[in-house]
Design a binder for these strands. Structure first.
Lengths: 238, 238
DNA sequence: AACAAAAGAGAGCATCGCTCTTGCCAGGAC
DNA sequence: GTCCTGGCAAGAGCGATGCTCTCTTTTGTT
């Protein structure tokens, strides 16, 4: 299980020499303003010059703290992954471990609430990739898998309660077997496939809502989401 | 049912005065190069100056044909919606009308194939909105609903074969009733909700694949997609 | 107090979207 | 056939971007 890493920046700001503290604080300020800009203007309009203006310094000074605009975006993506991971882990961890359905519902509801509250940050990690920019996996890798690992852990607990199912044949069966190997988790093909579908459908629901694809079909998106989350729980057999 | 409108540009290029033909051809050239740029660089890197360079004209000349970069984006979005609509309508229309499952599978497979072939155009319509730009609904409205209308028509045929289900209560029930009213379609609450889930899950699956969220979990994404499409057909009871 | 490292300032380069003015040139009216 | 007007391209220019370079100032450390 992954550790909550998102507060390491705060820890960093409290330790070290005054120079290091000031530097960490400056980076935090830059990221804070960047997130505000992101929420106002969108990811492509993220401007280091505008950040510098708002910070009251000249644009070239920002480069003392951030190597480039793309690196700043990567930092924000990592932050977003960790923020989402923190929220979902906390909510899921508050459930009784044997309350499988409750854990799934908590996971989903919290992810949706997080996304609806920060649509711009959600778009950063689950939207179409920012053009001309591919987030480096070595940076985003671990934080980017926290939610999926949470679901996988849930699936392991589900599997324990269910009779073992026959493995799937064909190319999908081979892929699932390979996944089982690399992850080292005991989840049958059937449940693993159902889990993938539930996970993808859940983020599909969130994306449709956040990105405005419903075009106002629902006045109460939360009710719709909860309803569908229940259906997905049924699909998982919990 | 909506007409296939996407070839009106070609019709426009064949008719009218030489002036109008040349103008329509120029706009087509601009859009073609824009799509190539989109595929290479991404939507935010879409540059009118680069288009002008590739076209061998000066940047200001492009503004004779395209009012602004945002308007060009809107044109591309409408084109993408229509291209996807054409493909899906053709594939679904080739199925026997009473082959409900076949129609659903054709709809989904074709949508996925279209998206995998043109990830940049898919991102344009189903990705996170291009920053600082909201596609005007009056332009994208009709083409943007073609696929959903196809699914709704399918759901109507499904409903005819199924025993009527009890309406849902609560806010979701009210939303679904309002949808039934405005659309004028006879689809029960239960099936309508299932249809929404299936639709959203399908595009969630496509988005996860196209946007690289699976991080290489599947060597055969098509097999995985077909498998899940079958599960969603089961969910629809077809 | 002196030093060195870090931070900031400013100029500059290439790019972008977009506007304006200036010519040019061909299609349509006569 | 000629004339003229409307559409078209060119070019300069404005404000903005990311990023680099150099120079100066600040500041923590010794």
């Amino acid at each position: 299980m992954l550790q909550p890493l998102s507060n390491c920046a705060i820890i960093g700001a409290m330790t070290g020499t005054p120079r290091q503290r000031a530097r960490a604080q400056a980076i935090e300020d830059i990221k804070r303003i960047a997130k505000e800009q992101l929420a106002r203007e969108g990811s492509a309009a993220l401007s280091l010059r505008a950040i510098a203006r708002e910070l009251g310094i000249v644009s070239s000074a920002v480069y003392r703290y951030v190597p480039s605009r793309d690196d700043l975006l990567t930092m924000l993506i990592v932050d977003a992954y960790n923020s989402l991971g923190d929220a979902v882990e906390a909510a899921e961890g508050a459930c009784a471990r044997d309350d499988l359905r409750g854990r799934w519902l908590a996971l989903g509801s919290t992810a949706r609430a997080w996304a609806v509250e920060r649509p711009s940050e959600y778009a950063l990690i689950y939207g179409s990739p920012v053009p001309g920019y591919q987030a480096p996996v070595e940076q985003t890798g671990d934080p980017g898998t926290r939610v999926s690992f949470l679901l996988l852990a849930l699936l392991v607990d589900v599997e324990r309660r269910r009779p073992p199912s026959a493995p799937l044949s064909g190319p999908l069966g081979e892929d699932l077997a390979a996944l089982r190997d690399t992850l080292g988790l005991e989840i049958g093909d059937d449940l693993l496939a159902r889990g993938y579908l539930a996970f993808t459908a859940m983020f599909g629901l969130i994306s449709f809502e956040v990105f405005g694809q419903y075009r106002g079909s629902f006045t109460d998106c939360a009710a719709h989401f909860e309803h569908q989350l229940g259906r997905l729980a049924d699909l998982l057999g919990i």
